[in-house]
Amino acid sequence: MASDRPGWYVISLRPQGGHAALRAAAARRGAKLLALSPWRLQARDDKAARAGLRAALACEREVFTSPAAVRCAAGLAPLRRQRGQAWIAVGDGAAAALLRAGIDAVVVPARKDSEGLLALPELQALRGVRVGLVTAPGGRGLLAPALAKRGAQVHRADVYQRVPLPPSPRALQALRRLRAPACLALSSGEALATVLAQLPAAEKAKLLRFPVAAASERLAAQARESGFARVCVAAGPQPAQLAKAAAQALDAAG
């Protein structure tokens, strides 16, 4: 088992300061974490963000794509349920943040990603229904077009933004020196594209040699198109699911 190997690594592409859950999940399987953060998250407090949020919070469906979306929205306006609204969170972290903000009933998909969210009954019959999408530019680009295709009137509120970060010298050195077995945990296509575009040629070539544990078939396809040869699909995007798939990927590689 990979979990019995000393010193194997999970490579994380999460935002700066957002690696704790994956680090803990990796540690439970005997792995260390190598963090390659593509960006940091920054709250928006401007006229466009406030106007977008007002429109989004007046909708029949409220969709929050991350804990950061909840925190930043709550910093701009009180979050209050109106009659007939359904409040929906992509994952458990966003749902917990909504509960802390005073929303007492939150719908969460069984599969904590865009595909799972789009499978929810609350997001099926949407012709003429207003959907507030509280998020950041980029990110879950699948959601808005899919909701609009179902007839929804999508009101998007970008309440935070991703500020790109160049790879830190420490992270590049860690990647160059990495000799232990390692697997890339992939839960964001935008993060993967950003990191690959920023890495120097030698470090990019090295990263592409590692196996990938992707959170979905869509992300697995992107990883293959990006040049990764060994790609497996995790049961979902949760840190424990990604860490388990990473261990299994290294077991399969021998």
Rank of each mutant, 00 (worst) to 15 (best):
G132H: 00
A94D: 04
L118K: 01
L143V: 12
C232G: 14
R111N: 08
A51K: 13
V195Q: 10
V108A: 11
A182L: 09
L76P: 03
P67L: 10
R5N: 01
Q153E: 15
A180Y: 06
K204E: 13
S3H: 15
A221Y: 09
A26P: 04
Q222Y: 05
P137T: 12
R100H: 11
Q85M: 06
A180L: 07
R28C: 13
R111V: 15
F228S: 11
K112E: 15
F64H: 09
G30Y: 00
P15M: 03
I103Q: 03
F64N: 05
P164E: 08
G30H: 02
P145W: 12
R130T: 15
A69H: 00
G138L: 02
R44L: 15
P181W: 13
L41V: 15
F64Q: 07
G138Q: 03
A101D: 02
P15T: 01
A69K: 00
Q173L: 14
K206C: 13
D46A: 04
L196C: 12
Q161F: 01
A193P: 04
G227P: 11
L13F: 12
L98R: 10
V107W: 01
A43Q: 00
R150S: 13
P38W: 03
L99G: 14
V63W: 03
A253G: 14
D45Y: 00
A74N: 12
R111S: 12
G102I: 07
A223Q: 09
V107D: 02
R140D: 09
L165I: 08
P181T: 07
P239W: 05
G227C: 08
L142A: 15
A191R: 06
P237D: 13
F228I: 14
E190T: 12
D45C: 02
G75S: 07
K206Q: 15
R130L: 02
I103P: 02
P211M: 03
L53D: 01
L133H: 08
S188G: 07
G75W: 04
Q82D: 10
A73F: 05
R218D: 09
A86K: 11
S114D: 01
P239I: 11
G91I: 03
A94C: 04
E122C: 07
A249T: 08
R140N: 06
R156C: 12
L178G: 04
L207V: 10
L13P: 03
G139D: 06
V10W: 04
L184K: 05
K244L: 15
T65G: 06
E122I: 10
A31Y: 08
D4H: 05
L192H: 10
S66K: 05
R28H: 13
A21H: 08
F210T: 10
P109N: 03
A240I: 09
R209P: 04
L219M: 08
S66R: 06
A201M: 09
L175C: 10
R5H: 04
A152S: 03
L34H: 00
A252F: 02
V107A: 14
L41G: 00
A220N: 04
G139E: 07
D113I: 04
P67Y: 09
Q173S: 14
A201W: 09
K112D: 01
A94E: 05
P78S: 11
A245F: 10
L192K: 12
L36Y: 05
R81L: 14
L208K: 06
R71Q: 15
Q124C: 11
A146I: 11
G254C: 05
A136R: 02
G227Y: 10
K47M: 13
Q238N: 08
L184Q: 02
